[in-house]
């Protein structure tokens, strides 16, 4: 079996002449946990939008040999490209189980759809275990904690049979422990999938990234391992201000804590 890969070449997204994504080329391999970082407004979300068919783009996005650009959103999803959103978007009125069951069901025929669910599908039960929400199966998704909603979304990608996972800031707003769990989860599910994680959290990135692409002003600024990227002067320049501020803040917080 060949490993999957996602290949972007010269992708551009223009909003009324403003190039939010300006000629991005990159290749992500299966089993290589790729982090996509960059300052606010760098174009990370827009790039994910372009891959998933939400933002009209030029260039080429290939999943294996299949060109994705120009296809409709739901067709791209059916090809195995799944994504989450910066703000968790689950179906709040439906239960955790219903959320997952819907995610698992895009291939169902009319007759199956018109019947009630008689048992929990295996894939759904497995995903409930994987994301640790088995106990909350019958609760409405709206009452879940923020972190749990993000896990539910990841579970939805799993039952959807996504082979490419594009996660937009999955650990934003999570506690340290939740971040740890999410990172472990991503490692586990990422082994046999192609995963791109958009993230601002540098510590999280350092702990879990296999490789990193840095985006700045719509362009790829640097790409490589965590160490390579951190050593890159361009990256330091873009991040220095931010990193310095962060360090200062952390120091202050530490002092106050003691």
């Amino acid at each position: 079996m060949n490993a999957d890969y996602l290949e972007l070449s010269d992708v551009r997204v223009s909003f009324d002449g403003f190039l939010a994504v300006d000629g991005v080329s990159m290749t992500v391999l299966q089993g290589d946990l790729r982090f996509l970082i960059g300052p606010n407004g760098a174009g990370k979300t827009t790039l994910v939008d372009a891959i998933t068919g939400l933002a009209p783009a030029t260039g080429s996005v290939r999943f294996g040999r299949t060109e994705l650009l120009g296809r409709k959103v739901h067709r791209i999803a059916r090809l195995g490209i799944g994504r989450t959103f910066q703000t968790a978007s689950v179906f709040e009125e439906l239960t955790v189980l219903q959320n997952l069951d819907i995610a698992a069901g895009a291939g169902r025929g009319p007759l199956t759809l018109l019947r009630a669910r008689s048992a929990v599908p295996d894939a759904v039960a497995e995903a409930l275990e994987t994301v640790g929400l088995s106990a909350r199966r019958d609760e409405k998704a709206g009452v879940l904690a923020h972190g749990q909603k993000q896990w539910l979304e990841i579970g939805m990608l799993l039952v959807q049979n996504s082979r490419v996972l594009l996660l937009d800031e999955p650990v934003a707003g999570m506690s340290g422990e939740e971040r740890e769990q999410t990172g472990e989860l991503l490692r586990r599910v990422g082994a046999e999938r192609t995963v791109v994680v958009v993230e601002h959290d540098m510590d999280f990135m350092r702990t879990f990234a296999d490789s990193v692409t840095v985006l700045h002003a719509g362009k790829v600024l640097s790409e490589g391992t965590v160490a390579q990227v951190q050593a890159d002067e361009g990256v330091q320049e873009v991040y220095l201000g931010e990193a310095a501020t962060r360090k200062a803040l952390a120091a202050v917080a530490e002092q106050e804590g003691e």
Binding site: G82, F91, E93, I102
Partner: peptide, 17 residues
């Protein structure tokens, strides 16, 4: 269930295929 999902988050449903 799907209809309720579409009612509440039409765009999200697209990304599920």
């Amino acid at each position: 269930e799907l209809l309720v999902a579409v009612r509440d988050q039409e765009e999200r449903v697209r990304f599920l295929g």
